[in-house]
């Protein structure tokens, strides 16, 4: 039996659950359809300590009781865990490899991408989606992104990633159609990086 949540100090979720989550869903869909393009949430949730409003908004929009959620050490504050369990209903799991959604607060010391679930041959869609808190979506070292949803190429400067991240990403690409998808979150903005996109310095 899991322990109950202490709901006494919880921050509220979406003010208008139906319309706010639809608006957020639209932004998330655009982010994954147009990789590298910055999407801003117009009505984000007020995030608990440890999470950016963008990361919390993605989690509340996409997670439910059927999507195990994993948080790294820096994201898993008491407030964040209680908040996500209450508002999304998602079970929090201890092993990154078992989660459908993963929130990574410490991008600089994140687990390698192969530690996350890459999907199954029959169901590549069962892979993990990573929500990574980035220091910036514009001022990091610029990289050229190419792939479906990008006309030609797009230059994106995600900041705060560890050095090996982009090599791991290239490795992730070799698994296609398996592999993880990523959202970079910063403040109230996100950038999507689906598994089909290749990047270079």
């Amino acid at each position: 039996m899991t322990l109950a949540i202490d709901a006494r100090d919880l921050a509220p979720g979406f003010a208008d659950p139906v319309f706010d989550s639809q608006s957020a869903f639209r932004a998330i869909m655009n982010a994954i359809a147009y990789p590298g393009r910055i999407e801003r949430f117009r009505r984000p949730v007020a995030a608990p300590a440890g999470l950016s409003p963008a990361a919390a908004t993605i989690a509340l929009t996409l997670c439910d009781f059927e999507t195990p959620l994993w948080l790294d050490e820096s994201a898993a504050t008491e407030a964040a865990v209680a908040y996500l369990r209450f508002h999304s209903g998602a079970p929090i799991v201890d092993h990154a490899g078992r989660a459908r959604f993963c929130i990574i607060g410490g991008a600089a010391s994140a687990l390698p991408l192969h530690a996350f679930h890459a999907g199954e041959d029959k169901y590549p869609d069962r892979s993990a989606t990573l929500i990574i808190e980035a220091q910036s979506l514009t001022s990091g070292a610029p990289r050229r992104w190419r792939g479906p949803g990008i006309k030609g190429e797009r230059v994106v400067g995600v900041g705060g990633m560890k050095d090996s991240f982009w090599d791991e990403w290239t490795l992730n690409q070799t698994l296609y159609p398996l592999g993880v998808d990523v959202f970079f979150a910063c403040g109230e903005e996100i950038v999507g990086l689906p598994r089909g996109v290749a990047t270079e310095a």
Partner: peptide, 8 residues
């Protein structure tokens, strides 16, 4: 797990 019992 950081969650705690609601019933105190």
């Amino acid at each position: 797990m950081t969650a705690q019992a609601a019933i105190k």
